[in-house]
Design a protein around this nucleic acid. Structure first.
Length: 656
RNA sequence: GCCGGAGUAGCUCAGCCGGUUAGAGCGAGCGUCUCAUAAGCGCUAGGUCGGCGGUUCGAGUCCGCCCUCCGGCACCA
């Protein structure tokens, strides 16, 4: 028996899942169910990513123990997944003491034993006030320019993974396994990224309690990616059940968002190589589902709760929409209008009505019973549909697979129109033809339902039941179930409409925004992403202490905000976002400040404007130009920048 | 700026190695049957296939240049 092990990204638990997160799980679930239908020994893994400072902080805000908070969130996630009919076989949490913790420790130990983990130290002047390391060049007379205090000299341990060593092995692996990274656009991206060189990865954080301690240095915990990625192995026995691990690993398919594909294609394989473990078969980076053309985000207030979409008719219409309307691998769009439109067209008018008319005619003309027989034109179409469906599904072209199933549905409707069973019923001499025609249609519907089983599990099962399929859906196997049946008799059930037509626009529209802890934008294995590739040596990045949620007035006062007048503005050559400003902040000479607002403003629009700047920001050089300060601007989700204007006032006036 | 992808009917997209009248689904309009959820079925969209130039007997389909959009990287202090 072929085995098939697939995973999705594990999710951060600092907010409930939104439609974008659900999209990933739904499509993965379709794939998992397809493989089960084929008879593969399928194992579908999902889980939560809990060792994140965001999670820790979130728990603290709510006055909860982090683990207790994670327990609650697990329930929230499981409830959503249940509501969407996600059939995962296992759910791993990164706080799992029995499975995940030993796995991470063993993996990091294996990498250490292989010489790929080394201890680096960062040392330098550390300003307690700023809570950060200060580059020597920023010190003024040996003092912190902001606090005017003498920084402490601090050494901090950090463990690094020798990612740089794997540049060549990875490139070779990509070349030898063309379908390792899909779709192709992601593959190109990753290959180029790796070609450009890899930087060793910091994999530990010192002085934190929320995380998995390094086995060889209990004072440090394993940092995000190393911890999170290991879930794929920890869930199937790595570090705690070698036999199980040998059975399941390697994973055949990792389904992840396109933003984190790179981490799965670079860090994860390198970790596995280092530990001497086999690599996964395929990593697929899916696209985003936008809402009305915009990325869903909490700040935009355009979060769609997947359960809202499933509220009235269950998860199947949503599952169908997301797999049929969005080419898998690309981005898609969700709007309630479109959702309703597709609901009516695909479900009410097309499939639902087909089931109804076949059942109604069979009941009326044949007393609800049909004798099987050799197939006519629809049998050939059904075979073609099943074949192209399987081909598409194997290629992960889910949308094409569904389209193939729908070709059969449409063909059945056309067939009925052509053969006109109701006319045949009027002529007793045509009784045989009538019986044959109705069976032909019913059998086509049955086969279409089999094809749709992975996409709409409960609806397809109901259709099968009505079409007299004796086997329970779980026992069906693709090859035999999609074959035309030529013998036997079956009872057809005429029941009510599966999907009542929606007559009013906005019939199933629900509130578009939720208050409270509606989802954040990113799927988990994400966000706190350390740079994979950057000019800055990884060694330079010290551990960032947890930022406090609230600051004191004193702390705020450290920031010197001042009114400034823009004297000159010009685009920085070769830059997409930078504008070079010359501003009057009430000092003897104008200051040069660079601002990343070129996408929102033409330089001419800026001259003469009165704005607010941060006057005591340490200088930084960007594109070779030194910037002495920073302008205040709102930066909405999805790019752009909106300058904060001030009433014209004397340049240099303190803002507070 | 560099790298990658894309620009085809109102919308979402197919169009492989170049070849008769450029396709599908949805929406819209018209017609029609009546088994069915006023659903189905049929017909209709006359689209500079982003623009210009080139190769060719012949180009969405190959080459060059340009424009626009989307990703990634460099900058976003």
């Amino acid at each position: 028996m072929t085995s098939f092990f697939l995973t999705t990204a594990i999710d951060f638990v600092n907010s409930r899942p939104h439609l974008g997160t659900a999209y990933e799980k739904i499509t993965a679930d379709v794939i998992a169910r397809y493989h089960r239908l084929k008879g593969d020994d399928t194992w579908f893994l999902m889980g939560n990513d809990e060792h994140s400072q965001n999670v820790f902080r979130r728990a603290q805000e709510q006055g909860k123990d982090p683990l207790a908070y994670c327990d609650e969130m697990e329930q929230v996630f499981r409830d959503v997944w249940r509501g969407l009919d996600i059939s995962f076989d296992d759910f791993i949490r990164t706080t799992d003491q029995k499975r995940h913790v030993p796995a991470v420790q063993r993996l990091v130990q294996a990498c250490l034993d292989n010489g790929d983990v080394y201890e680096g130290t960062y040392e330098g002047p550390y300003c307690v006030g700023c809570e950060e390391f200060k580059p020597e060049k920023d010190l003024v007379d040996g003092l912190c320019p902001i606090h005017k205090t003498k920084p402490e000299w601090i050494r901090e341990k950090n463990w690094f993974f020798r990612l740089s060593r794997y540049q060549r092995p990875l490139l070779k692996f990509y070349a030898d396994h063309p379908s390792f990274i899909e779709p192709e656009v992601r593959r190109n991206e990753v290959v180029r990224l790796v070609e450009d060189g890899l930087v060793d990865l910091s994999i530990s954080r010192a002085g934190q309690s929320w995380g998995i301690p390094l086995p060889f240095d209990p004072t440090s915990v394993v940092y995000v990616w190393f911890d999170a990625l290991t879930n794929y192995a920890s869930a199937v026995g790595y570090g705690w059940d070698d036999a199980l691990f040998a059975k399941r690993w390697p994973a055949n398919l990792h389904i992840v968002g396109k933003d984190i594909t790179r981490f799965h294609c670079v860090i994860w394989p390198a970790m596995l190589m280092s530990a001497g473990l086999p690599l996964p078969g395929r990593i697929f980076g899916h696209g985003w589902v936008f809402f009305k053309g915009e990325r869903m985000s909490k700040t935009m207030g355009n979060i769609v709760d997947p359960l809202d979409a499933a509220k009235r008719f269950g998860p199947d219409p949503l599952r169908l929409y997301l797999t049929k309307e969005v080419p898998y691998g690309g981005d898609g769009d969700f709007t309630w209008e479109r959702f309703e439109e597709k609901y009516n067209a695909d479900l009410a008018n097309n499939l639902g009505n087909l089931v109804n008319r076949v059942a109604a005619m069979t009941e009326r003309f044949q007393h609800g019973r049909l004798a099987a027989g050799a197939g006519g034109p629809l049998a050939a179409l059904a075979a073609e549909a099943a074949r192209s469906y399987a081909g598409a599904m194997d290629r992960l072209a889910l949308h094409e697979g569904v389209a193939a199933a729908y070709r059969l549905v449409s063909a059945a409707n056309e067939y009925i129109a052509e053969t006109q069973p109701w006319s045949l019923a009027k002529d007793p001499a045509k009784a045989d033809a009538l019986a044959r025609v109705l069976y032909e249609a019913a059998e086509a519907v049955r086969i279409a339902a089999v094809l749709l089983l992975p996409v709409m599990p409960s609806s397809a099962a109901e259709i099968l039941r009505r079409m007299g399929e004796p086997a329970s859906p779980g026992d069906l196997r693709f090859d035999t179930a999609t074959a035309w049946r030529t013998s036997g008799e079956r009872g057809i059930l005429n029941a009510g409409a599966l999907w009542p037509r929606l007559e009013d626009k906005g019939a199933i529209t629900v509130s578009e925004t939720k208050s409270g802890d509606a989802g954040a934008e990113a799927p988990a294995l994400h966000s706190e992403a350390p740079a994979l590739h950057s000019e800055a040596p990884a060694l330079r990045t010290p551990a960032a202490p947890v930022a406090p949620e609230q600051i004191s007035i004193d702390e705020f006062m450290k920031v010197q905000l001042k009114v400034a007048r823009v004297l000159e503005a010009a685009r920085v050559p070769k830059s997409k976002k930078l504008v070079q400003l010359s501003v009057d902040v009430g000092e003897a000479t104008p200051r040069t400040i660079l601002a990343g607002i070129a996408e929102s403003y033409e330089p001419e629009q800026l001259v003469g404007r009165t704005i607010v700047v941060v006057a005591n920001l340490k200088p930084a050089k960007l594109m070779g130009i030194e910037s002495n300060g920073m302008v205040l601007a709102a930066s909405p989700e999805g790019g752009g920048a909106l300058l904060i204007d001030a009433e014209p006032g004397a340049p240099g006036t303190r803002v507070r």
